[in-house]
Amino acid sequence: MTATQNITHLKTGQTALILSYQEGRIASKLMAMGLLPGAPVELIRKSPFGGAYYIKSNEHLLALRTAEAKAVWVLPQETGTR
């Protein structure tokens, strides 16, 4: 069940481990931007008007659209507190 979770399933402030990607083109871009399988990812914030996710992985801060966030399969680590 956990294997089917993606970034959009995370709560704000929750961290997870990146497992793999669902779509090649997005994977290529995200990996080039430093978002790698095995790396931790934290959902910092959802955009005020929805549709975008502000995430942090190691020292990288990235904004992803829903479709892009959905393409990142994750293993949630802990529940968000913020």
């Binding site: 997005i26 931007m33 801060l61 990235l62 904004a63 992803l64 659209r65 892009e68």
Partner: peptide, 11 residues
């Protein structure tokens, strides 16, 4: 053409 956001938010 696919559309992307994938934007780096610099410190």
């Amino acid at each position: 053409d696919p559309s992307f956001l994938m934007l780096e938010l610099p410190a």
